[in-house]
Amino acid sequence: MFKAILFDLDGTIAHTDTIHFSIWQSWLQKYGLNIDLSFYQQNINGRHNPDFLRQWLSELSEEEIQQLSNDKEAYFREIAQDQLRPLTGLFTLLDWLRDCQLKSAVVTNAPRSNADFMLKVLKLHDFWETVIVGEELPKAKPDPYPYQEALRCLNISPDEALVFEDSPTGIYSSVGAGIFTVGISTTHSDEVLSECGAKLIIHDFSDPRLKTIGVLDNI
């Protein structure tokens, strides 16, 4: 039996990808980069902003990259206030997690300001033992480091944890840390998530297949 459940944030705890995609599609046009949903899914979703900006807007300085990232996320917080919705079944799962006295953490590539904002809007800011933010670490996802840091903070081993992730970037990170990972198909297909290493694919937290791995098994 696992002792902790670790959650990604964007696309896992809350539906946010349509908001992020819409903003990036509009803003990147100003730099001559026209993107569609497929490009977003393959190159932006789940990644640390400066990482993909260095790749696709290499003409920008580090200062310009950081400013663009900061401005975009500030705009996200401005327009997302009334649009954030938790994934179906999230609060039932969190109630079960608390009843079972399991530890919990958020592990995200979102900036700290976004993570704090989203969790406050969802009234979950004080729920977690820890919130791990990739930009505050030596390496962000897809490197295993963020999930390894979560394990250290919770004082558990990889085989005592379970991860929920929605992006290839996040799944590579959690699988690389040796943690059993459940993929959530909010943004990517079941096939893509499985190929990245997810052991079980669900649509949301109401999926009855969770009971096959001991989650919500007494509800």
Results as ranks from 00 to 15, higher is better:
residue 139 K to I: 12
residue 104 S to M: 08
residue 122 L to K: 07
residue 117 F to K: 00
residue 201 I to V: 07
residue 55 Q to G: 13
residue 58 S to I: 14
residue 124 L to I: 06
residue 25 Q to P: 08
residue 103 K to M: 04
residue 127 F to Y: 13
residue 166 D to Q: 09
residue 82 D to M: 04
residue 76 F to W: 00
residue 10 D to G: 03
residue 89 G to Q: 00
residue 47 R to N: 08
residue 159 D to N: 15
residue 64 E to P: 10
residue 116 D to F: 03
residue 81 Q to D: 11
residue 193 L to I: 11
residue 74 A to I: 07
residue 203 H to D: 05
residue 5 I to C: 12
residue 116 D to R: 15
residue 142 P to M: 01
residue 213 I to R: 10
residue 127 F to I: 06
residue 117 F to T: 06
residue 181 T to H: 00
residue 150 A to F: 14
residue 35 I to P: 03
residue 124 L to E: 05
residue 139 K to H: 15
residue 151 L to F: 07
residue 198 A to I: 05
residue 44 I to L: 15
residue 59 E to P: 07
residue 160 E to S: 02
residue 100 C to W: 05
residue 1 M to P: 03
residue 171 I to L: 00
residue 148 Q to R: 06
residue 48 H to Y: 14
residue 185 S to M: 05
residue 104 S to L: 09
residue 147 Y to I: 13
residue 99 D to R: 12
residue 152 R to T: 15
residue 187 T to S: 12
residue 188 H to V: 02
residue 195 E to N: 09
residue 43 N to E: 15
residue 90 L to V: 00
residue 118 M to R: 03
residue 100 C to I: 03
residue 80 A to K: 05
residue 39 F to H: 08
residue 180 F to Q: 03
residue 198 A to N: 04
residue 194 S to R: 01
residue 153 C to R: 10
residue 200 L to E: 00
residue 198 A to F: 05
residue 14 A to T: 08
residue 44 I to S: 06
residue 102 L to K: 15
residue 70 N to R: 06
residue 25 Q to D: 08
residue 105 A to Q: 01
residue 178 G to Q: 14
residue 183 G to A: 08
residue 19 I to A: 04
residue 47 R to E: 07
residue 176 G to F: 05
residue 155 N to M: 03
residue 187 T to I: 08
residue 107 V to M: 13
residue 61 S to Q: 10
residue 164 F to C: 01
residue 13 I to D: 01
residue 93 L to M: 14
residue 200 L to C: 12
residue 209 R to I: 03
residue 197 G to D: 11
residue 190 D to M: 02
residue 65 I to Q: 04
